[in-house]
Amino acid sequence: MTSLVQFSMIMKELKMEGFHVTRWTDRWLEGILQNKKWIEEGKLNYRETVTEGFENMFNAFVDMLKGGNFGKAVVKF
C-alpha cells in the first residue's frame, strides 16, 4: 500500500508537508487576532452545536463523543 501512495505522489509530483502548531508559538497572538478579524469581516465562518440547559449536558457529551456535533460543542445554562 505504501508503495502505491509513494508512486502516486511521485507521478503526480505532489509535495507533502506536516504542520505543528507549536512551531509557531511566538506568533500565537497574531494568529488569534487575525482569525478574530476575519470572523468579524465575515471572511471566516465557523459552526458550533449549542445545547440548551444543564439537564441536557450528559446527552450533549455523549452526542459529541459519537460525532453528532459540528465544530465546537457548547452547553448553555
Rank of each mutant, 00 (worst) to 15 (best):
Asp63Tyr: 07
Arg47Trp: 02
Leu29Ala: 10
Met57Gly: 04
Gly53Val: 09
Tyr46Pro: 01
Phe58Ile: 07
Gln6Thr: 00
Ile10His: 13
Asp26Cys: 14
Gln34Arg: 11
Val75His: 08
Gly42Arg: 13
Leu33Ala: 04
Gly68Asn: 08
Val75Ala: 03
Asn35Tyr: 08
Arg47Val: 12
Lys76Ala: 14
Lys43Leu: 10
Lys43Arg: 15
Lys66Phe: 14
Leu44Asp: 01
Trp28Cys: 04
Leu14Asp: 07
Val5Tyr: 00
Met16Phe: 13
Met11Ala: 07
Thr51Ser: 03
Glu40Lys: 12
Lys76Phe: 03
Lys12Phe: 10
Leu4Phe: 06
Glu55Trp: 05
Glu55Ala: 13
Asn35Arg: 06
Lys12Pro: 00
Gly18Tyr: 08
Phe77Cys: 03
Val74Gln: 10
Asn35Asp: 04
Lys66Ile: 05
Phe54Asp: 08
Thr49Leu: 05
Lys66Met: 12
Thr25Asn: 09
Leu14Glu: 01
Arg23His: 10
Ala73Gly: 00
Lys37Asp: 03
Gly71Trp: 05
Trp28His: 06
Val75Gln: 05
Thr22Ser: 14
Asn35Met: 08
Met64Leu: 12
Trp24Ile: 03
Arg47Ser: 13
Ile10Phe: 00
Glu30Ala: 13
Glu55Leu: 06
Lys36Ala: 09
Gly71Val: 05
Lys43Thr: 08
Gln6Met: 05
Met16Cys: 10
Asn56Glu: 12
Lys12Arg: 11
Thr2Trp: 07
Ile10Tyr: 13
Leu4Val: 09
Asn56Val: 06
Phe7Gln: 14
Asn45Lys: 12
Glu41Leu: 11
Lys72Asp: 09
Gln6Asp: 12
Asn45Thr: 01
Gly67Leu: 01
Met1Trp: 07
Ile10Thr: 07
Met64Arg: 08
Thr51Val: 09
Ile10Asn: 05
Phe7Pro: 06
Trp28Met: 11
Glu30Phe: 10
Asp63Gly: 15
Lys66Val: 04
Glu30Tyr: 05
Ala73Met: 01
Met64Asp: 05
Met1Arg: 03
Glu30Asp: 12
Asn45Gly: 11
Ala73Lys: 04
Ile32Leu: 15
His20Tyr: 12
Val75Gly: 08
Phe70Ile: 13
Leu65Ile: 10
Val5Phe: 08
Asn56Leu: 12
Trp38Phe: 04
Lys66Asp: 02
Trp38Ser: 04
Trp24Ser: 15
Phe58Lys: 06
Glu30Ile: 03
Phe54Tyr: 04
Leu4Lys: 08
Gln6His: 13
Leu65Ala: 09
Asn59Val: 06
Gly18Val: 06
Thr51Trp: 14
Gln34Phe: 07
Gly53Leu: 09
Leu29Trp: 11
Gln34His: 06
Lys12Thr: 14
Trp38Ala: 01
Asn35His: 02
Glu30Pro: 03
Gly67Phe: 00
Arg27Asn: 14
Leu33Arg: 02
Asn59Lys: 12
Thr2Ile: 00
Gly31Val: 10
Ile10Glu: 13
Gly67Val: 02
Val50Arg: 15
Glu52Phe: 07
Glu41Val: 00
Val21Tyr: 14
Trp38Arg: 04
Arg23Ser: 09
Gly42His: 05
Leu14Gly: 04
Val50Gln: 06
Glu48Cys: 13
Gly71Ser: 00
Asp63Val: 11
Met16His: 02
Ser3Tyr: 04
Ser3Lys: 01
Leu65Tyr: 09
Thr49Met: 11
Val50Leu: 06
Glu55Pro: 01
Met11Tyr: 09
Thr25Val: 13
Phe58His: 03
Asp26Ala: 15
Phe70Trp: 02
Gly67Arg: 01
Met1Ala: 06
Phe61Val: 15
